[in-house]
Amino acid sequence: MSEFISKCYAKMHSGDVIVAYKGEINANIIADTLGLVEARLSHEMLENLVRKKLYNVMVECLQNLFHHIDKVSLSENEPKIGAFILSKTNDGYRIATGNLVRNDKKSNLLKEKIDKINSLSKEELKEFYKFVLNNQTFSEKGGGGLGLIDIARKTGNRLNYEFTPYNDEYSFFNLSVLISE
């Protein structure tokens, strides 16, 4: 399993890496990473608004990751394992996240949701966002179902994703978004 995750993680790399992490994902790791990203970005030559957008999208990507990792065993003590990479490429900044998901109805819904988001225009995304904001209650995981829509709206770019099958039960879900410069 860990060899499989390492292979998937290696495939996530692109451009010049600013922050990369693979391992346990918990609330403290997310908070520390956001602090680190903020510090690193303050050294990058970039416009204040791009910095703000980048930070916002990073928050959403990491919190999405935190809320949606499926654990391999149901044991309470087992950590949630995931990965993320922030890198600079020729077109801007790329954020990639990766985690294991069960090959069940939920991952089909995730595919459908991303495909739907990618098919919408800017105006349609705004309406979809407002609809979910106003009509959907919080999931038990604490997410509002708005994260992916918000990422698509803020970046104005497609959500790229890939499911790499591990076995009949699990796949590695990789999401990657570009914040154009």
Partner: peptide, 13 residues
């Protein structure tokens, strides 16, 4: 607000 996430956006509503 300087930043707010989507989880907060529901609560602000």
């Amino acid at each position: 607000l300087e930043y707010f996430n989507t989880s907060s956006s529901k609560c602000v509503l």
